[in-house]
Design a protein around this nucleic acid. Structure first.
Lengths: 195, 195, 195, 195
DNA sequence: AGATAAACGAGACGGTACGTCACGTCTTAGG
DNA sequence: CCTAAGACGTGACGTACCGTCTCGTTTATCT
């Protein structure tokens, strides 16, 4: 007579309050002190969370930064149906997040973390691949099929052209993105790929 | 008109041995541990130099990294007279330095430092402006005058197109530069600016 | 009348191992290098304790020295009932500690600390007052009442006469105390105060 | 035909200005920071003297302190001819120096130095022996011969009784000497040695 | 008068120590 | 079982001093 144990874990589950407070504190500290001066101790004090809680749930401080940046992205919206708008819609969340408040500093922190730390870098690149690069490739491939743009171009290179300036501006030039960045990038690309 | 007495300072001069050892140690540490784990203590031990000596001559550890990277650059050479070669010659020192030994890691460190630290960033951007961007602008302007390329283009944007991939590859993708990167970039740009 | 909830603190308690190792290291360093060359770094290395732990529990290095000396004192014993022995018993712990091993050097260190540092001085004087001077005054007053010594003398001055040579010998002359110092001092005093 | 070598050294002699400024700075620093925080660097800056000059003329910082204290003593004067006054005259310079301005702190510093440092201790004890103890012994021996005091007493112990309280008060109790300390000590001693 | 040599101020150098902060691990108590 | 609190050993921070050294200047003696 075997008991199907149903094996539910005992005790309390992970505290969502704690997680949110830690990510919020991470953003604040990134904005105020930057990546290199970020410290687990300060985040823990700021968030009134114990260090143990932080170390239990994140493998490294870098991945916390990446998560802190990504959890603040607005959801992707669908404004239009024409090619330029479909591409711009995919870039828009990043553009918006970077312009809201101190989003700029938070993203610079996350990017630095991704450059420094192997694990954080993987987390970052995976997210970018799944949420930005793959959808962009899909759209580009589709409109190429519809002969809106010519078909003999390098997909990866095209995606790089679209997103590259985001990283270099944020990271190296500490410059804000210009207004309507997403649309401009999209229409510039489509023009240069005109058949 | 008599010359001022030129009043030489008393006491010992800055030790060149010390300076070189510190920069060399900085490179080693950057390669082995990366920017965030770089520490003045380790550099000082590695270089058998006292911390005071480091703090005496560099305002921040970031500027040390920038100097450590830049003092390693090979001198600019002049291989050819045709437009592509003239542009490639300006990019070549960076390309070579990045490919020699661990140059890649050193430059990533310096770039990270420039992103994190205000002063290091200024030092970096000034050097880039004086030694890469300004000469590139000169050459581009000149060959435009000679009608080799068309005249209605944005100089800054053209320079960005040439150098941008260096930074993003080094920093974000940790990818090596391809062979003949400089020449390829130069010829690609000139083709796209053909009159 | 309900009792307050007694609110016990969370987290680990102070490590007794650590405290003992630090005091022991302090004694060793005092013996080997003396007060002025005593350093928190050396003690910390010697005791395999972190500097933070030292700074957490002692307000200044001087108070550590005082504690290091006092925690080594043997307990007061009660050998006899006649006046000379009762007085000698009170001085005996100091005499013994000073003669055991390097007690001399430890006490010189503690005394120097007490001279240099306000807080260490207070700690020292308080201990002396409570454990040496006050008991001595009690005994002297009592035997004066019993007319064993005359009654018109200055209590404080008598106590100074008993203890003074301890300090000056230890500190200034670096000379050891003679054999049976306590008894001799006691009997000399009582003789001079004979009615 | 022997040559008297005369061998006079070339070059400038020791600068008295420099010596005075260094001793004065030492006194200031002793008063302000005490023995343990005294530093050659601070003295050198304060006195506008180079460290080399300090190290050239003093074997250790402790001997500087002793010299700084002793060079401040007023000259011994001769007020009277009766035994009490003759003894008091010998103690008076110390008493005066200790009461003038911050003499107290300077002497505490010098005494601490003498306790810590072998060489400084020797310098101190030699000076005391030559200038205080030896003359006191002479006077006491002489008045004993004249039967003003009895002849069977320990000279050293008598001298200790006279000077002991100076050291213990200055060093351990940080207490000032009472008015007419020298005369009182002298008359008290003579009374207790009355034949 | 010119050369020689000592003493000086300034201060760079390799070190050690300061007192503080952060790391990642751990122990305790409470929910 | 998760959490807050926080002590622990390790080690880096940026500053101050240690004692030694190297400069360039000044000054007194010797030739």
């Amino acid at each position: 007579m075997t008991k199907a144990p149903a094996k539910r874990r005992q005790g309390p589950r992970r505290s969502e309050d704690s997680r949110a407070a830690i990510l919020e504190a991470t953003r604040k500290e990134l904005v105020e002190n930057g990546w290199r001066k970020l410290s687990v101790d300060k985040i823990s004090r700021h968030a009134k969370a114990s260090k143990q809680t932080i170390y239990r749930w994140w493998p490294a401080i870098g991945t916390m930064c990446v998560e802190a940046a990504l959890t603040q992205l607005p959801p992707r919206s669908t404004h239009g149906r024409d090619p330029v708008e479909r591409i711009a819609d995919l870039l828009q969340p990043l553009e918006s997040a970077m312009k809201a408040g101190s989003g700029h500093a938070v993203f610079r922190g996350a990017l630095m973390a991704a450059c420094d730390d192997k694990e954080a870098g993987d987390a970052w690149r995976n997210w970018i691949k799944d949420n930005i690069r793959a959808p962009l490739r899909l759209v580009l491939a589709e409109i190429a099929t519809k002969k809106i743009i010519r078909r003999d171009f390098d997909l990866d290179e095209a995606v790089d052209t679209l997103t590259g300036p985001i990283w270099s501006r944020v990271l190296i030039f500490r410059a804000p993105l210009p207004d309507n960045f997403s649309s401009h990038q999209a229409s510039k690309l489509l023009k240069s790929l005109a058949p």
